[in-house]
């Protein structure tokens, strides 16, 4: 009887889970008092992009988002509690999509920038949508959303470039290969 091969190998599951846990660790350990919306994207997107860039399979980013969302909810990182899951999931799914669209060439700085920026913007949109759903008047959300979008774009993009550079070095060092499944 042929054994059905799992979609993610044990190595890939372990790697993606560690990346998800790293997001929660970074959120807990790092506190940058910038008071600029989206500034956490500079480190938040890095583990997701690295995970997607190494595993190179659709669903990798979604898995990272799902696990990190569960962990963030359990550790109470945000006042939104279980709704945290949607924020992390949205970021993971968008970076997943970006990886697929860019042929998993996330070591390319421009592709990394786009993936990071798009992930951070998706996080912003879902966050604001949840705030509105939970009762914050929409007009309070709209005030400053233009500037918030730009700062999310910039910080997410910088995080994406950082992740791209890390992936590039891993490729150069032979730790990962461009042809890995």
């Amino acid at each position: 009887m042929a054994i059905k091969k799992p979609y993610f190998s044990l190595y890939e599951i372990a790697l993606l889970s560690l990346c998800a846990a790293l997001i929660v660790v970074l959120n807990t350990a790092l506190s940058i008092p910038l008071k600029i919306p989206g500034h956490t994207g500079i480190y938040w997107v890095v583990p997701v992009i690295i995970g997607v860039g190494i595993v190179k399979k659709p669903g990798a980013g979604t898995y990272i988002g799902f696990i990190s969302g569960i962990l963030a909810t359990l550790f109470g990182l945000n006042t939104l509690h279980i709704f945290n899951l949607f924020i992390y999931l949205a970021m993971g799914m968008i970076i997943d999509l970006s990886g697929f669209l860019f042929f998993y060439r996330l070591d390319h700085p421009a592709a990394g920038f786009i993936a990071g920026a798009a992930g951070n913007l998706a996080k912003m949109v879902v966050n604001y949508a949840l705030q509105t759903f939970l009762g914050i008047p929409a007009v309070f959300i709209l005030i400053g959303i233009g500037t918030a979008s730009i700062t999310h774009f910039i910080f997410g993009g910088i995080g994406g470039i950082i992740a791209a550079l890390v992936l590039g070095r891993l490729l150069k060092a032979g730790v990962i290969s461009r042809d890995d499944p």
Binding site: L121, V139, L142, I143, G144, I145, G146, T147, A148, S149, I150, F153
Partner: peptide, 13 residues
């Protein structure tokens, strides 16, 4: 997308 957000910020109220 960013242009849309800026437009919302300016005219959304």
């Amino acid at each position: 997308f960013l242009g849309g957000m800026i437009a919302l910020d300016t005219f959304g109220e």
